[in-house]
Simulated scan of single mutants.
Amino acid sequence: MEFRDLKAQYGKYRQGIDTAIQEVINNANFIGGKEVKELEGQLADYVGVKYCISCANGTEAMTLVMMAWDIKEGDAVFVPDFTFFSTGEIVSFRGATPVFVDVDRETFTIDTIKLEKAIIRTIKEGKLTPKVIIPVDLFGLPANFYEIVKIAKKYNLLVLEDAAQGFGGNINGKRACSFGDAATTSFFPAKPLGCYGDGGAIFTDDDNLATLLKSLKIHGKGEDKYDNVRIGVNSRLDTIQAAVLKVKLKAFIHNELEDVNKVYQLYTERLLRIVETPFIPDGFYSSFAQYTIKLKNKEQRDGLQAKLKEHGIPSMIYYVKPMHKQGAFSYLNYDEDFEVTNELCDTVLSLPMHPYLSEEDVESVCEVIKDYLV
Rank of each mutant, 00 (worst) to 15 (best):
E339D: 12
N57T: 06
I317N: 07
D227G: 08
E73K: 15
K191Y: 02
L308K: 07
A28H: 10
G32N: 02
V101C: 01
I148F: 00
S358V: 01
F139C: 13
T112Q: 12
E161Q: 03
L237E: 00
E40N: 12
A68Q: 11
V320K: 14
E38D: 15
F85G: 03
D111N: 09
R236F: 04
L160Q: 10
D81N: 10
K150I: 09
A118R: 00
I31W: 06
N234H: 14
A210D: 09
S364Q: 10
Y291P: 06
G58Q: 00
D181C: 08
S286W: 07
K214S: 14
L160M: 13
L209G: 15
L357D: 09
I313P: 01
G166L: 00
K34Q: 06
N342L: 14
Q326G: 07
R14Q: 13
W69V: 11
F288L: 05
E38W: 09
P322S: 04
K307Q: 05
P314V: 02
L308E: 04
P278H: 10
N208W: 12
P80M: 14
F203A: 04
F82Y: 15
A306D: 06
R270S: 12
A190F: 09
E38I: 15
K225H: 06
D282F: 13
G200S: 02
P189R: 00
Q305S: 05
S54K: 01
L257T: 11
M323Y: 02
V49R: 07
G222K: 02
K214F: 09
S178T: 03
G74W: 03
R236M: 05
C52Q: 10
Y196E: 08
Y51N: 09
G199E: 00
A190P: 08
R105L: 10
A306S: 05
F179L: 07
S86V: 09
K296R: 06
F338L: 01
K127W: 00
